[in-house]
């Protein structure tokens, strides 16, 4: 997209934390010139290049696909590489950027995502297909694909995980990201460990902990719907045996 050429001066308010020096995070303000196309990630890069080389943050693709740059902008979790500074300025011409909340801060915008990945692994995010793989491809019906609700588009940025009030107080909770992935596998007619999956997600740390407050939907940069996935899993967990039997039947015709 072309830059319209006009620049303006804005304030970027950043939460800084250096574990070697600081006891707790502090807010610092940086003034810089932006154009209408400057993204928040561009602004961070600019600050790092011209004002403070110690500013630390994760980024990679700059195209909203790698999921590394999720941060909290003016109180909402989002990717910063696809958000223009202009769109987030308050009345005083400032934007506030913090690391993803409720996760231990390693440095500045970099948070420790260990619990996020542990919970992800816990749901066995991979597909477990039948042993006797057919010669031709497995075929899913258009309805079965539609039921996945685009869950495969998740980029694992952690925005939903860190926006969830249950994960905020309980890192044993499986979390919206992993439950979304679990729904993807549970609803996949090729998957063979449906029973095991449904038992795992309906335990103490699973779907029944969700309070349906939609923070995850609000935070998702890919407009996915973890709440709906959790609701679907709740329904299936309550009729697990019937669902597993139907799955076995379905696999005969894959």
């Amino acid at each position: 997209m072309a830059t319209n050429g006009t620049t303006r001066t804005v304030t970027i308010r950043l939460q800084r934390f250096n574990p070697d020096v600081d006891k707790k995070p502090v807010m610092k303000e940086y003034t810089l010139e932006i154009t209408s196309d400057t993204t928040i990630l561009d602004a961070l890069e600019q600050i790092k290049a011209t004002q403070d080389g110690s500013l630390t943050f994760r980024r990679s693709c700059r195209h909203a696909i790698c999921g590394s740059c999720a941060m909290n902008v003016n109180g909402r979790n989002t990717l910063v590489c696809n958000q223009r500074v202009n769109a987030h300025l308050d009345r005083k011409g400032a934007v506030t950027v913090r690391p993803l909340p409720y996760l231990p801060i390693i440095k500045d915008m970099v948070v420790d995502r260990t619990s996020f990945w542990e919970q992800y692994q816990r749901v066995k995010p991979w597909l477990v297909p039948p042993d006797d793989v057919p010669e031709k491809e497995f075929r899913m019906t258009p309805e079965e694909v539609a039921a996945l609700n685009d869950a495969e588009k998740c980029i694992m940025c952690g925005a939903c995980y860190s926006a969830c009030t249950v994960t905020a107080v309980n890192k044993r909770y499986i979390g919206p990201h992993a439950l979304l992935k679990a729904s993807l596998r549970v609803l996949d007619p090729r998957d063979t460990i449906t029973n095991e999956r449904l038992i795992e997600i309906s335990g103490n740390d699973g779907v029944f902990r969700c309070h349906t407050i939609f923070n995850c939907i609000d935070a998702c940069p890919k407009k996915l719907n973890p709440t709906q996935a959790i609701e679907t899993l709740r329904k299936l967990a309550q009729k697990r045996e019937a669902f597993v039997a139907a799955r076995k039947e379905r696999q005969k015709s894959l």
């Binding site: 107080v169 309980n170 890192k171 044993r172 909770y173 103490n204 029944f208 902990r209």
Partner: peptide, 14 residues
């Protein structure tokens, strides 16, 4: 019961 046991530290007193 549900909101109290949401808190991780309380989990062991379930």
């Amino acid at each position: 019961y549900m909101v109290i046991t949401d808190v991780e530290k309380v989990g062991r007193y379930r």
